[in-house]
Amino acid sequence: MHKKPHLPEKMCPVCQRPFAWRKKWARDWDQVKYCSERCRRTGSG
């Protein structure tokens, strides 16, 4: 079984759930605020 190293996490301000770092966010992790596109649309609207 493959064990992932501990990844940084943030809390989504919309759904209040923690979400972990993803490779697609590697370049702009500091700017990521929402766990998903759906929460991003809900939060900015």
Score class of each variant (00 low, 15 high):
1 M>G: 15
3 K>A: 08
4 K>R: 10
4 K>I: 05
6 H>F: 08
6 H>A: 12
6 H>T: 10
7 L>P: 02
8 P>V: 07
9 E>P: 02
9 E>G: 07
10 K>Y: 01
10 K>Q: 01
11 M>F: 06
11 M>G: 04
11 M>V: 15
13 P>R: 09
13 P>K: 11
14 V>R: 11
15 C>H: 07
15 C>Y: 06
16 Q>C: 08
16 Q>H: 14
16 Q>D: 12
17 R>D: 12
17 R>F: 07
18 P>L: 12
19 F>N: 08
19 F>C: 07
19 F>E: 04
19 F>V: 08
20 A>E: 15
22 R>G: 01
22 R>M: 14
22 R>N: 03
22 R>Y: 00
23 K>E: 14
23 K>Y: 11
23 K>Q: 14
24 K>H: 12
25 W>S: 01
25 W>G: 00
26 A>S: 15
26 A>P: 01
27 R>F: 03
28 D>P: 00
28 D>I: 03
28 D>T: 05
29 W>G: 03
29 W>V: 03
31 Q>Y: 06
31 Q>L: 09
33 K>V: 14
33 K>G: 00
34 Y>C: 03
34 Y>E: 01
34 Y>Q: 01
34 Y>T: 12
35 C>D: 09
36 S>L: 05
37 E>M: 10
38 R>G: 06
39 C>S: 05
41 R>P: 00
41 R>N: 07
44 S>N: 15
44 S>E: 14
45 G>R: 15
45 G>Q: 14
45 G>T: 10
